[in-house]
């Protein structure tokens, strides 16, 4: 099983910082896109080394999962 972590920081002025950890490659971006839809407009985005690591074989399909929940 893979552990996926998300750290969210909501400042007093309302700015939001989201850090996705553990999910590799495209899985990482699936989380980022999903949270952007929930929260608002993306001002900045930085990919970290984990993004470039090989994806887990058991790739999540968050999009499908999200749509099936709607």
């Amino acid at each position: 099983m893979a552990q996926h972590d998300i750290e969210i920081t909501i400042s007093k002025t309302g700015e939001v910082r989201v850090h996705v950890k553990g999910a590799k490659g495209k899985n990482c971006m699936e989380y980022a896109k999903w949270l952007a839809q929930i929260i608002g407009t993306v001002k900045d985005q930085k990919l970290t080394s984990e993004y470039y690591e090989p994806e887990e074989k058991n790739r999540i399909d968050l999009k499908q999962e999200l749509h099936s929940d709607d």
Binding site: V16, R17, K21, G40
Partner: peptide, 11 residues
């Protein structure tokens, strides 16, 4: 590690 995004919230 992963991705970091900065967002302006929409209420």
């Amino acid at each position: 590690m992963g991705v970091v995004i900065i967002l302006t919230p929409v209420v």
